[in-house]
């Protein structure tokens, strides 16, 4: 309490916060257009969908993220879904987290260009939120019809007049790819165990930057065809599929913010070593 009372109304922490907000906001208002190189990781994912995935394949897309993670994951999801739709893939969206129905509707509204010309039930279906975590993922692999009776909007899964694409899609073997867009780490493990190991279905990861190091071992062990991490990968994929989305819009701000943080780290280290080098003043009054 006493510490808080002594706190300055505008201390160093506030200066750093303010500088960070300025470094993010200014490039958004006045974009510089810094060049973006395509990493081999993103290129591999693009090449797999473009050259290896058969046109018209069924793809499961698990949207497992909350509002806060939209900024990093929604641009990835939109760019990859655009690519999959261009290959006439049939997409079965599902969510194993309660926020799924909201983020799916937001994805549809912010990426309306991606869904334009695609018909619900014929080109894509949304199964809604399916509770149960890993057992639910396992159950979906065994049988979608046996897991959920209706889609998110109450249409029966077996009503093939409303959901004609579901006539030939039921179990893991009917899918050629699973695209997991998740803000958590566990989700990827569920699919590696229940879809890849048990059924050998190729997986594609869409993750937050911070999750990237945790799931990279799966990609290195060839348990997933590749991964996209954060806004950087989203921006690269947007370049590849020719869609100007949030990923590209964010890149200048990301670069400026990172440069600022690097400067902070350098200054912090210089101050640390400079103060450490000084001899300590003799303590007064200590026996």
């Amino acid at each position: 309490m006493a510490k808080e009372e002594k706190r300055k109304p505008f201390g160093m922490a506030h200066v750093l916060y303010t500088l960070l907000i300025i470094s993010v906001a200014l490039p958004l208002l006045y974009p510089v257009g810094l060049p973006i190189g395509i990493s081999s990781t993103t290129k591999d994912v693009y090449n797999y969908i473009e050259n290896t995935l058969p046109a018209g394949s069924a793809v499961l897309v698990d949207l497992y993220y909350e509002m806060a993670a939209r900024a990093e994951l929604e641009p990835q999801a939109a760019a990859v879904v655009k690519h999959l739709f261009e290959k006439n893939c049939k997409l079965v969206f599902v969510s194993t987290v309660t926020y799924g129905p909201i983020v799916f509707e937001l994805l549809k509204s912010t990426a309306s260009d991606v869904f334009a010309g695609k018909e619900y039930g014929r080109d894509y279906v949304f199964l809604g939120y399916v509770a149960g975590n890993e057992p639910a993922v396992r159950s979906l692999a065994e049988s979608i019809r046996g897991t959920v009776a209706a889609d998110n909007y109450g249409n029966s899964i077996t009503d093939y007049n409303k959901l004609p694409m579901m006539r030939n899609i039921d179990k893991a073997e009917d899918f050629k790819l699973v695209f997991i867009v998740s803000s958590g780490t566990d989700t990827f493990g569920w699919y590696v165990r229940q879809w890849y190991t048990a059924h050998n279905i190729p997986l594609l990861f869409g993750a937050l930057s911070v999750i990237g190091p945790s799931i990279k071992p799966y990609v290195d062990a060839k348990q997933a065809i590749g991964m996209l991490t954060g806004q950087r990968s989203a921006a690269e994929y947007e370049v590849l599929v020719g869609r100007k989305g949030l990923g590209l819009a964010a890149m200048d701000a990301q670069s400026f913010a990172h440069a600022l943080i690097l400067i902070f780290i350098i200054i912090g280290n210089v101050v640390f070593f400079a103060t450490r080098a000084k001899p300590k003043p003799k303590e007064v009054g200590k026996k």
Binding site: A68, A71, Q231
Partner: peptide
């Protein structure tokens, strides 16, 4: 270090997203 750098990227990404979205 790799993890920390990615954490920064995610947090800055969230801030950018909040402003843009």
């Amino acid at each position: 270090g790799y993890l920390f750098a990615n954490t920064i990227m995610t947090r800055v990404g969230f801030l950018i997203g909040i402003i843009l979205q």
